[in-house]
Design a protein around this nucleic acid. Structure first.
Length: 877
RNA sequence: GGAAGUUUAGCUCAGUUGGUUCAGAGCAUCUGCCUUACAAGCAGAGGGUCGGGGGUUCGAAUCCCUCAACUUCCA
């Protein structure tokens, strides 16, 4: 029998994923006899392909879900995608363009047909990629935010909130692209630093000839939309202006001079022109001071008749012309060069025009209250908790949520506009017609109804996700079905801090609004995956490795562990391929440990008594590590859980335990030791499974033939029971002796093959006798005995036991003496610091008893060690 | 402009209520080894004024003040 010395993941990963799928081992069914453990996936964008952020996020979810499954819970991980209005629509528009089709030339229905076609073709790619990672989602539950049921839920919720008076229409400033004639989200706007000019324009004070104030603006073409001049009330330069009016040049309209501390006295002239229709800050200021709004721009960026002059001119041409006109009337003070940040359309590169438009809003003041307190009171816990601050800041200053988008791909708003200018909100057109007839005009027909053109924000559907993936009807019935009752609230949510408000907070809001209950207990916030230079990994930068290629190269297990080695909750993950390499090496290490054990032959005649101490030690060590690992998991310290597992496997199991019990070359092992070792190996595979599902399942089945039900994925997490700390401490003392002997050999340039004699002046030889076989094997000793004094020996002290290695004539006495002297001095220094504390009355009186006790123990240990060292020194003569 | 966070070994990070986990881990580095499971490995070693300064305390990486640098969110 020969097993390859290098583990080849490609052989096993496809096999086991298919096996798990075939036998439906990821599947979860309602089962009241079992405790549910539920995670809903943060639905990736249908247009998406797997990137490193998904890899990290989904690895963590899979680790959590696999461990929960092994803990005997009914583990349910619901996968799915969201329709991502903006991103998908952009993609489809582009695709159509390549085919020579312009969105403006086709109808909404035609466009949606294309979009759906596209979705059917490419929408599932990312989910298929997740399978390569090993994600154990219940794929039969795969949901999409635009599935019929989920869509229905969204519409129901809109109507419901509208009828509750929580949804209203209002004016809002949007990013308008005059070239593309569409509103853009902030994400689609690219801010560029542009060299522009600052125009200093003089406005005459009303009723006072030759009295002027000067404003500075980069947009002189908007002066016709001015409705006020604002000064800082604390500005001594302008006290004389208070309560007066200024006259807009060229059109000679008088506007009030108002006061607000918002105005920066340092910037410009200290006088601010207020143009609510064309600047977001001015709009806010306008609201505050109840100012009129004058919009002088058409949708295509030309001036309209409200401008009074230059009507029909493009905004940029108007800018130049206004500058000139003002100069001609002598009211242009100067023009300065100025650098300003200007938003541009990602798609058309047109300069974005802030534009007021009628949008739909959700009132946030009342509806957010339970969501706010549940996080503040830790009913929902954020991990790490530092995000509570951010959450609070947002919730305390929450603004109404603009839920409409000027797009076609998504859930069309169920508002129907009527010829009389009114509208009705209803789930269906039929219902709407009925309402319209009843409320306004009984002669209305279907043709009179015009459904709102806009769709809802994608978050307005994904905020229902933890509910709607289980039950799409509860929003209208108010009665949760069996699924929802069983799985809701879900347990853990794993997502990025960037969408804490966009998504997480809103899910909590919807959870309380529609279920009266939180949607999840824990929110684990991952960091951003960055490259070595600290830049966010992104497609456009091209600095992200292809995840599937990484998997092909290092194996999914290697990639999973690699990602987790360095990703504490909430911290960014500085990705380095070295980490993935480490993961792969770890897999290989485990594989080779298995090769070793698998290769042993058993001799039933052997007793194996020399291995008893090693077995007892590992048993205890395993329990010690298990306690630590479980603790890390409870605290969502996934990286630490992995690191503890890594060290248990590599250091304790491979480097110590296997070496301790390993028979000499081609020698057999006894039955009892073999059996125990297999049990240890199996326990270790269990701990490894959440991190490295493929490798662990492979070895699990190679250990022996097992049925589907006996698969590792379904096995039970090791039980935690008490352990004897004394045993692990004693073993550490023995290991210390081994290390010291090895160290000594290395420092003297001796070959490891050179066997040495070891004598120990031990207070209790029992310990060393118990581990005698181990000492001989690992330290390569030709003999082990106990004596008080050995001539011509090198020595070292472990605890307070002197250890001697006789060197005959080759020993350098002076060097040995110097070494001992150095150690004595160090220990004495340490003792002094301890004594200083103990002789300090305030310390003894003030410190807790335990601390004082510890110091006394330190004192005793140090004294014993000094004594042993001094004896060794004396023996050297 | 407003708010929060971070700063500990070359890198990435632990370090809970001030006191044995107190200066740690992994990786990287250096030295010696192809020792029959593994060179994707084994054995050993070195490396830090805990961002600077000040304070509180018997005692500070840990608490307070201050300065500096970086990051993120909101505007």
């Amino acid at each position: 029998m020969s097993i390859a010395s290098k583990y080849d993941p490609s052989q096993t990963e496809a096999k086991w994923y298919a096996y798990w799928m075939e036998h439906k081992l990821f599947s979860s069914k309602v089962d009241p006899s079992k405790e549910p453990y539920t995670i809903v996936i943060p639905p990736p964008n249908v247009t998406g392909v797997l990137h490193m952020g998904h890899m990290l996020n989904n690895t963590i979810q899979d680790v959590l879900i696999r461990r929960a499954r092994m803990q005997g819970k009914n583990a349910c991980w619901v996968p799915g995608t969201d329709h991502a209005s903006i991103a998908t629509e952009t993609k489809v528009v582009q695709l159509l363009k390549e085919k020579g089709i312009d969105k403006k030339d086709i109808s909404r229905e035609e466009f949606l047909t294309h979009a759906w076609e596209w979705k059917e073709k490419y929408g599932g790619i990312i989910l298929e990629q997740l399978k390569k990672l090993g994600a154990s989602c219940d794929w039969d539950r795969t949901a999409f935010t635009m599935d019929a049921g989920l869509s229905d839920a969204v519409i129901t919720v809109f109507v419901d909130l509208y009828r509750k008076g929580k949804i209203y229409r209002g004016i809002r400033m949007v990013n308008w692209d005059p070239k593309g004639q569409t509103a853009l989200s902030d994400d689609e706007v690219i801010t560029k630093e542009i060299a522009s000019k600052l125009y200093y324009i003089k406005y005459q004070i009303e009723g006072e000839t030759d009295q002027y104030l000067t404003i500075a603006t980069t947009r002189p073409e908007t002066i016709m939309a001015d409705v006020a001049i604002c000064i800082n009330p604390n500005d001594p330069r302008f006290t004389h202006l208070k309560g007066k009016k200024a006259i807009i040049p060229l059109i000679n309209r008088a506007i009030p001079i108002i006061e607000d501390e918002y105005v920066d006295m340092e910037f410009g002239t200290g006088c601010l022109k207020v143009t609510p229709a064309h600047d977001i800050n001015d709009y806010e200021l306008g609201l505050k001071h109840k100012l009129e709004v004058i919009d002088i721009l058409n949708d295509n960026g030309t001036l309209n008749e409200k401008a009074e002059i230059l009507v029909g001119e493009d905004r940029f041409i108007a800018r130049k012309k206004i500058g000139k006109l003002i100069d001609e009337i002598g009211q242009l003070e100067k023009i300065e060069d100025y650098k300003s940040n200007v938003g541009h359309s990602e798609r058309t590169d047109a300069v974005i025009e802030p534009k007021l438009s009628l949008q739909w809003f959700l009132k946030m003041d009342e509806i957010t209250k339970p969501a706010f307190s549940s996080v503040m009171e830790d009913i929902i816990q954020l991990h790490p908790p530092k995000f509570k601050n951010m959450y609070r800041a947002w919730m305390e200053n929450v603004r109404d949520w603009c839920i409409s988008r000027q797009l076609w791909w998504g859930h069309q708003i169920p508002a129907f506009h009527l010829p009389n200018g009114e509208f009705v909100v209803a789930k269906t057109a039929e219902e709407a017609l009925e309402m319209a007839r009843k409320e306004y005009d009984s002669s209305y027909t279907m043709e009179d109804l015009k459904q709102d053109e806009d769709v809802l924000d994608t978050w307005f559907s994904s905020w229902l996700w933890p509910i709607s993936v289980f039950d799409t009807e509860v929003f209208s019935t108010g009665k949760p079905n069996e699924e929802l009752k069983y799985y809701y609230p879900t347990n853990d949510l794993v997502t990025a801090p960037e969408i804490l408000f966009f998504w997480v907070a809103r899910m909590i809001i919807a959870g309380y609004e529609y279920m009266g209950e939180k949607p999840f207990k824990n929110v684990y916030l991952t960091g951003i995956v960055r490259d070595k230079q600290g830049r966010k990994m992104s497609k456009s930068l091209g600095n992200s490795p292809d995840p599937l290629e990484l998997i092909a190269q290092y194996g999914a297990d290697g990639v999973r562990t690699g990602m987790l080695f360095s990703s504490p909750a909430g911290n960014d993950l500085p990705f380095d391929e070295k980490l993935v390499e480490q993961g792969r090496n770890f897999a290989n290490k485990i594989w080779n440990a298995f090769r070793l054990v698998k290769g042993w032959e058993i001799d039933p005649k052997l007793e194996g008594s020399e291995n008893k101490a090693s077995i007892a030690w590992f048993e205890n060590r395993f329990q010690e590590a298990l306690e630590e690992i479980n603790d890390h998991f409870e605290k969502f310290r996934i990286s630490d859980a992995l690191m503890s597992t890594y060290k248990l496997v590599w250091d304790d199991f491979c480097s110590w335990y296997l070496e301790m019990i390993k028979p000499a070359y081609q020698q057999p092992i006894d039955q009892a030791t073999y059996d125990r070792t297999i049990v240890f190996f199996e326990d270790i595979l269990k701990l490894l499974h959440p991190f490295m599902p493929f490798l662990s399942e492979e070895i699990w089945h190679q250990i022996k033939e097992r049925s589907v039900e006996e698969s590792l994925i379904l096995s039970t997490w090791p039980d935690q029971h008490s352990f004897d700390k004394k045993i692990t401490e004693e073993a550490n003392q023995v290991f210390e002796v081994v290390s010291q002997v090895r160290n000594l050999r290395a420092s003297k340039g001796m070959s490891p093959k050179e066997a040495l004699d070891l004598s120990i002046n031990a207070k209790s030889p029992e310990l060393y006798n118990r581990f005698a076989a181990v000492l001989r094997k690992l330290a390569n000793l030709s003999s082990l005995n106990f004596s008080e004094k050995v001539d011509n020996a090198m020595s070292f002290v472990v605890k307070s036991d002197e250890c001697f290695i006789p060197m005959g004539d080759s020993i350098n006495i002076e060097e040995e003496k110097a070494n001992l002297q150095k150690e004595i001095e160090y220990t004495k220094g340490f003792l002094t610091s301890v004594m200083k504390k103990l002789s300090n009355e305030r310390f003894v009186a003030g410190a807790p008893a335990q601390v004082v006790e510890n110091e006394k123990k330190k004192q005793a240990d140090a004294e014993a060690k000094i004594k042993a060292l001094e004896e060794s020194l004396a023996k050297l003569g």
